[in-house]
């Protein structure tokens, strides 16, 4: 009898242990699944961010190329000027401000950098809202 009782107790303990293990296993699996899910999401997000960055880079390059082509001036002055620009989602230039120039920039030179941005309007359109940025600062450098 005693032996039987012992056996039962043993069986129960075994069953409990198995149940516990199974539960733990399930928990582990769930947790892993969750973790994997999170990783996938993070990866997807990262991939998306990278794509946005890449698309923005392409878009900004296109804007830069257009402004660069539009930059004409009468004489050469080796002066660097920053030009603040605000544009609409469609690329229409709404505001152009020559912010600061190094050295002695002539009025004609300052006008040339302002007009380069205005002449380039509308700027190339951003492929998505995420890529789009309204404000751009152009750094004009003759050489």
């Amino acid at each position: 009898m005693k032996k039987k009782a012992e056996q039962e107790a043993k069986d129960k303990a075994e069953a409990d242990r198995k149940a516990k293990e199974a539960k733990e296993q399930a928990q582990r699996e769930a947790s892993l699944k969750k973790a994997l899910q999170a990783e996938r999401e993070a990866e997807a997000k990262a991939a998306n961010t990278a794509m946005v960055q890449k698309e923005r880079s392409t878009w900004i390059s296109a804007i830069g190329a257009k402004v660069q082509r539009a930059w004409t001036r009468d004489t050469n002055e080796n002066v660097v000027c920053d030009v603040y620009t605000r544009q609409t989602r469609d690329g229409d230039v709404k505001e152009v401000r020559v912010q600061n120039c190094q050295g002695d920039a002539s009025d004609a030179y300052k006008r040339s950098v302002e007009l380069a941005v205005r002449r380039a309007s509308p700027l190339p359109k951003a492929p998505s809202d995420e890529v789009f940025k309204s404000e751009i600062i152009f750094i004009f450098r003759p050489q």
Partner: peptide
Amino acid sequence: VSLAALADDPVRVEITGGTEQ
């Protein structure tokens, strides 16, 4: 082309050259 590190900063673009015309 240099992209801004912080999301809210304006994008900075260098324009080099231009044409004497």
